[in-house]
Design a protein around this nucleic acid. Structure first.
Lengths: 145, 145
DNA sequence: ACAATAAAAGACATGTTTATCTTTAATTAA
DNA sequence: TTAATTAAAGATAAACATGTCTTTTATTGT
């Protein structure tokens, strides 16, 4: 469904949301290990999430690392997809028609729109904090071997 | 949701199913024009759909071209995804965990599985013929400018 | 100031996707 | 058998995705 980059972005963000805070920042090494991702590549991805988009904060130097503000933790999962440039698929048509619409639908439109609405709902309703708290509770996992 | 290749494959297949038959084969030029895709690239894709997988038939030479058997037209849309190697996403987890399962779920698992089930249902229930016939009726479109 | 630590930034490498163009092979009709 | 037509096959190329490695910058503690 998503690119590797976005998968890592989602897992890393959830890990940082769960484990980190402004007082306890998380190093890239710990993040990569915890989610099972290539460290340098994950670093690039986190860099992009700290840029303009205000999802993750980072501090260089000793005791530095990544963390999220309480406000950022309340963002919907979709905001991560947006930051990774992978949310446009929620607007897109199964057959790849730019102008697919209610008045000019593709052959899958009417059946798919019902599913798409649920997908959008899922990514807009679930917050980062929401998902992260289930990790803390040990109910769900972000790394599996 | 899908790669360009798969989008072209879906549109091309629907067009051929709709317009073609063993008596009236469709040339690659007509297909590409009708669905708005790059001709040579579409040719490669159709080639792969005529290979092992028995979705599309083709004949070289004058009055040659592409067509589908009535049997092939009754295949579910999923068979095109399989032929394009893009159906594995229907098994995959949103966060990219290979082993995500009911007993070891990712944070999105429980909510996403409901949606995934519908997606699978959509691609397995809808047949190529089914979707193509709606094109013929002018109710839906496979090219929009 | 200096050394240590950690992220940021940049260069590089490999593979895949998305194409385009040319040549070959198959088929038909004259 | 020759010319025309059409898909198949192959070579090539640009863009992007995925990943590694090195250097630079920011920050902290001594």
């Amino acid at each position: 469904m998503f690119s590797k980059s976005t998968e890592y972005a989602l897992r890393a963000t959830l890990y940082i949301a769960q484990k980190g805070s402004e007082e306890k920042k998380i190093g890239i090494g710990e993040v990569a290990k915890a989610i099972g991702s290539p460290q340098s590549f994950t670093a690039k991805i986190l860099q992009s999430l700290t840029k303009d988009n205000k999802i993750i904060c980072s501090i260089s130097g000793p005791h530095g690392g990544f963390y999220m503000t309480d406000k950022a933790k309340k963002l919907p999962v979709r905001s991560i997809l947006e930051a990774m440039g992978e949310d446009e698929f929620l607007d897109k048509c199964v057959l790849g028609l730019d102008k697919c619409s209610e008045s000019k639908p593709c052959p899958m439109h009417s059946k798919y729109k019902i599913i798409k609405k649920q997908l959008i709902g899922l990514f807009e309703t679930e917050t980062i904090l929401n998902l992260a708290s289930n990790i803390k509770a040990g109910e769900v996992f972000i790394k599996l071997k």
